[in-house]
Amino acid sequence: MARRLSRSQSLRAVLGSLAIAGALLWQPAAQAEQAGVWQQVQKAGVLKCGAAVAAPYVMRDAASAKYSGYFVDLCRDFGERVLKVKVEFVDTNWDNLVAGLQGGKWDLAMALNQTPERALAVAFSTAATDYQISLLLNKDNPKLAQAGETLTDYDKPGVTFAVMSGTAADKAISAVIKQGTVMRLPGMDETRLAVMSRRADVLVDASDTNHLFAIANPTWAKEVMPKPALAKQGVAFGVRRDISWVDMQVLNIYLTQRRETGEIAALVDKASEQVNAQKAP
């Protein structure tokens, strides 16, 4: 037998139903209000991309100040073709790339490695490409004649690893080398010169840049992809953490489609050829 509700119980039930309905109506409205990053960019008429130089991701011609590289191509294409706005590249460095994004100086930070520490400060798009640290050595180096693909083959007393100070490669190699010596240098050119002059035995850098260097120096250079993989991470666009799910989807769908069709791989090849052409005598 059904129990009849009192007037007060009926009123509470009606009010509860109205509250639930109001909450459901409010959620799409709140989401729509938050989904404004790309709308703001379109209103301003310009997409600003923070640019810290690291070939072949982001490159800058010293004479013309023009930017190139495959993340530059992606940023330009996303702004012009998807958002229908002009694209502006804002010069910065790796120390300030995340801070500038947080401060609203640019809308996208290009070529950020996806790390848990950075994810505390910014949000990441889906990865455009993958990052992994590799080893580059002189294949005639007698110290490494028997070395294979494991890090223990290289982590020996008397073996020196050259790495750019403060980079992801520096952090990764410093955590695993116990017997060898880590030589920290201020720039990529210095690390390469150290290996070329044999002041160092192993160059530790991103696999794509080491691959380019090996291709440019086939007579002596050998690249090794250590197993297990060292610091394998996605390389993505950084965006503000308050970006809405809707706006993030726009960028992620764009990147996924371009990666799956092989277009990003083609952009990587183009940027790599450019780097090698610039270094050719």
Rank of each mutant, 00 (worst) to 15 (best):
R198P: 07
L11K: 00
Q132T: 08
S134G: 14
E33Y: 11
T92L: 00
K86L: 03
T261C: 03
R76A: 11
V235D: 11
M225P: 07
Q27K: 14
A32M: 05
Q40D: 10
E190Q: 10
Q233R: 15
D201V: 00
T256R: 14
Q34R: 12
A145M: 11
Q249H: 11
L112D: 02
L137R: 09
G158P: 13
G148M: 04
V250E: 07
V182A: 11
P56K: 02
Q249Y: 03
D189T: 08
L203G: 05
F213E: 00
E149P: 05
V246S: 10
A221D: 05
K143M: 06
W106L: 09
F124H: 07
R192W: 07
M1T: 08
A2H: 08
S197M: 09
H211F: 12
L108E: 08
S165T: 12
S125G: 12
A214H: 04
T160L: 04
R7S: 15
L136P: 05
S207Q: 09
E80I: 01
K139W: 02
G22F: 04
M248A: 14
Q40E: 10
A266Y: 01
M188E: 13
T150N: 13
A168V: 12
D140G: 13
L83K: 02
W245M: 10
I20Y: 02
A194L: 10
I173P: 12
A147I: 03
G262Y: 06
I20L: 15
Y131L: 14
P116M: 02
Y131N: 15
Q274D: 06
Y254V: 02
I215V: 13
V41F: 00
Q179R: 08
Q9I: 05
P28R: 00
Y131M: 14
V14R: 14
M183C: 13
G79T: 01
V204N: 07
P56S: 05
M1E: 11
A63M: 05
V182P: 15
L74G: 07
F213H: 00
A44M: 08
K105V: 00
E263C: 02
M59Y: 02
K171M: 06
Q274Y: 01
A54S: 14
G79S: 02
Y154H: 05
